[in-house]
Design a protein around this nucleic acid. Sequence first.
DNA 1: TCCTCTGCTGACAACGTTGTCAGGGAGTGT
DNA 2: ACACTCCCTGACAACGTTGTCAGCAGAGGA
Lengths: 335, 335
Amino acid sequence: MARATLRDVARLAEVSPKTVSRVVNREAGVTPAKVAAVTAAIEKLGYRPNFTASSLRRANGRTATIGVVLENVANPFSSTLHRAMEDVAREHGVAILAGSVDEDPARERALISTFAGRQVDGLVVAPASGNQGYLTAEILGGTPLVFVDRPPVGISADTVVIDNRAGARRAVDHLITHGHRTIGYLGDLRSIATARDRLQGYRDALADEGIRPGPVVEDVHTESEAERAVHRLFAADRPPTALFTAQNLVTIGAIRALRSLGRQHTVALVGFDDFPLADLLEPGVTVVAQDPTAMGRLAASLVFRRLAGEQWEPAVHVIPTRLITRGSGEIQNAV
Amino acid sequence: MARATLRDVARLAEVSPKTVSRVVNREAGVTPAKVAAVTAAIEKLGYRPNFTASSLRRANGRTATIGVVLENVANPFSSTLHRAMEDVAREHGVAILAGSVDEDPARERALISTFAGRQVDGLVVAPASGNQGYLTAEILGGTPLVFVDRPPVGISADTVVIDNRAGARRAVDHLITHGHRTIGYLGDLRSIATARDRLQGYRDALADEGIRPGPVVEDVHTESEAERAVHRLFAADRPPTALFTAQNLVTIGAIRALRSLGRQHTVALVGFDDFPLADLLEPGVTVVAQDPTAMGRLAASLVFRRLAGEQWEPAVHVIPTRLITRGSGEIQNAV
DNA sequence: TCCTCTGCTGACAACGTTGTCAGGGAGTGT
DNA sequence: ACACTCCCTGACAACGTTGTCAGCAGAGGA
């Protein structure tokens, strides 16, 4: 039982397909009698317009769909971005194709290519590491493209990011203010630009005060890796009195490790990126919070402004971060 | 600068459009020389096939896209479902259109209609309250439809759920086992079927032991509502010695309230639905856990099996729940 | 009465692609 | 040398829809 088409409706209502099209699109100038006949036929056949076919023919060729390429739709940061964009898209009557790349550049390319093939009107991309130079104007054919969370490499486009370096510096300053001089850094994969920036911010803050960078552990990507790394740090000589954990899962892994060492109340900790329930842990977790909702809304609205015909030079938009003190970062150095 | 089409490529390569189509689709039987010419032209023009147009013409009319209708893409349960479905979809080379309904039946209808208009090959729906009878065969025209998390009303279709009643009973049994006789219930909107089932499970467990149902609060939908409700419970006569919180956010709100009352170590609590960091709170939170990954995978694979042509009578698939003890549920009744 | 104008309707082609089919050229067997 | 395959290629139409345009009927004016 195939879907009814516009021709089927036309046949049943004894009018031309074009008239059905007019009724469906609420165009003026159709006799009420015909409108009624067509409406009845539509009802009877359960006809639903094929939007795909109509956008193929339509003047602007828009599909009222945008593509959203995220790190992982299930992670809280990505899914908050996603939701914010959905809200903006809904205001424009636009649907969202979403997908996860899991830090895999090949998957990023595959997803974008899939979305482009489906003729999305715009793309928002949280790029995996690698190079986005393949997204040439030719490929996109004028499709608006906005990067979010991480800047692209090898291409100039609108980008919505936070100031990772300044945020990290702020976090580490906070620890220094509380008397710490041996501050460990635990950060994500070196291949991720934001991770490098956060490490740089960490270094900046220490350099300002003439403090030697404490133990630095990079390429910590998962909770369990973070847990192991912290155990190693505290088994070694000169363990840090404070930790700066430069990513969500790393923060949580570190907390888990401190717990099992019984040090959660003696070692200070500031994390980058807020997470649910951070306030309910003991101690509450002090973090530098991003605002994924603001990022998502802005990224999506840039796409829609381009679609509306506005033009401007691609720019980088920086969303501010916020230090949220909850206890873990205010533990004074005992020395 | 419009996107290059297959005709443009054909013109440049001096072959017919059909030959370009053959090359793009890797059909056998094209002279290597022509393949090379076409490939070069594709490269030069940055041509990307219009998948939308091709699925319009193609034999089966498939768009290699499925629609996923969730409560809220940003909530951990929904987004885990989403991710699980994405993984299955990827195996089939299928993209996902996702959207949030926020408990609003009108939005559910709008989203499904949007997705249907874009000719999705299948639909997975976590229904908002209301009636899904509008999803008649006529409308869907044979598109596979699977419900997840909540059973549909007014229509028979494949459904993937957990046994909410049994899970709730299990949770409350656990509290009874630990000596509690006044067990409060805090649950979600009465309009949500699963909330009603969980309340029923709560009643079942108490009835089995001949215990009078303790204070019951329904229609608690948000964290702050839960917080207020708990404060009210403990301000009243005969406060419960244990709580069964029948939803994610309700559990968290209740914990927050118990904290502020200083009772988190004296009032037992079992929540329905696991959440991240439940193990890191003090006490750890005992929960009846669902398995959204398993639910999502199953729901998606049912869609793909139907798409592959398998046929069977619509059935309800029940995914088991699991009681995870972490401390809060094992607090003994002091009396 | 005839002409013009307006308002409604449908025929036709096209959006970008692919299924069908027929035709031409080269290769094989006699 | 001739017939017969087989292989490759392109013309054509069609998927479901809408932009364009021409035609027709009825109303209004001279």
